[in-house]
Amino acid sequence: MLEFDGLHKSYGDHHVLEGVGFTVAPGSMFGFCGANGAGKTTTMRIAMGLARPDSGEVRWRGRPLDEGSRRRVGYMPEERGLYPKMRVGEQLTYFARLHGLDAAAAARAAEEWAGRLGLGERRRSRVEELSLGNQQRVQLAAALVSRPEVLILDEPFSGLDPVGVDALAEALLEQCRAGVPVVFSSHQLDLVERLCDAVGILARGRMVASGTVEELRRREAGRLLRVVAPDAAPGWAGAVPGVRVVSERAGDTVLELAEDTDDQVVLAAALRTGRVTHFAWREATLVELFREAVADPAQRTAREEVAA
């Protein structure tokens, strides 16, 4: 298990992290979401020893990450970092060697990863000559080339075209299947939803939600029911007990049901008004969950009071 446990960090009076904690199982992918400045990068930098937490620690297989075990972590920093004038192949070999591979194994691994990420032809190019997308691939290859036991990637998908995103996603899934725990941060929530087994949402230095996307949906109270009954008189749904009308426009209503309300009762009521052309639970997207989770707590409380 990769465990982030009770991380606190402040710069002066500014509290960046206030008890961030989550765990990532081997072979699972953890998507790390949060608004800009929520503390995602700081959390990852603490794991890599690039920032010191005021308290808390990051553990891998039950032991705090230290110099030695960090060499078995593949890391991709938020601000990309490569030697601009070094050739791709040499650069990958160098990073592999820094992670402890011997010369021959490092050269083989560099060649292998350059090939796998579609950089085979550019192995002898200098990094500064490559397109941004290709530089990104080199950066990922630099994280993967040492056959890491753990992957920590800060915004790996930013700046990639759709083909690049697919290639990167495939590479990460492959690592996952091989048993590597993968943590990555992203603002592309559709990607996180598609790829990740578990999601953590960070807001104001705390984890406001974490778990599988399913769990988050279930935990988020009040799923929405959309009913389209074209012939219904306005206000038909308000009469059904346990139903709150979220929106209503020309027979198209969005309803929120109380805990013990049977959706079939709602359907029966709708049918009594005439034809029903649409009746379905609307699954909250991760975007909605995210908005809900990072929303200011004061506003959220106010809305809940209105609902009650």
Binding site: M48, G49, L50, P77, G81, F95
Partner: peptide, 17 residues
């Protein structure tokens, strides 16, 4: 400065002091 400006120093310091 090259290592600092290209941020490669983050990758390096993840493996050494």
């Amino acid at each position: 400065v090259e290592e600092k400006s290209s941020r490669v120093v983050e990758l390096l310091l993840a493996t050494m002091r």
